[in-house]
């Protein structure tokens, strides 16, 4: 069924924020095509009336009390940051907008 193009792979890479190289585009296009062909098999038995299982264990209503727990310190929060400034994570300028 699938015949995934380089353009589609490029689009996926963009959605997934991966700056893939031209060479990777070719390799991935071929591999994704092959994998998707194989996994499309799930369609053979996925009849309309079969419910989807999203969770392996059928639990419901797991809630937490609204009680404050200890936080990380600012130092701990920022301990892994590639860059920090004034107690905040420093990142390159943001172009996009909030959704």
């Amino acid at each position: 069924m699938p015949n995934i193009s380089r353009e589609e792979v490029a689009h996926l890479a963009k959605l997934a924020r991966l700056a893939v190289t031209d060479k990777e585009l070719d390799v991935f296009a071929g591999q994704l095509d092959e994998i998707l062909d194989a996994v499309a098999k799930v369609g053979e038995v996925a009849a309309e009336d079969i419910p989807q299982t999203s969770h392996a264990v059928p639990l419901t209503n797991v809630f937490r009390d609204d009680a404050v727990q200890p936080c990380l310190s600012q130092e701990e929060a920022l301990s892994g940051a590639p860059a920090a400034e004034d107690g905040r994570f420093r990142v390159p300028r943001i172009l996009g907008e909030e959704q």
Partner: peptide
Amino acid sequence: CGCPNLFGGEPNTHVC
């Protein structure tokens, strides 16, 4: 999570 839901505060102190 159990972090306090407070307006403002020193940056990155209500985090876990």
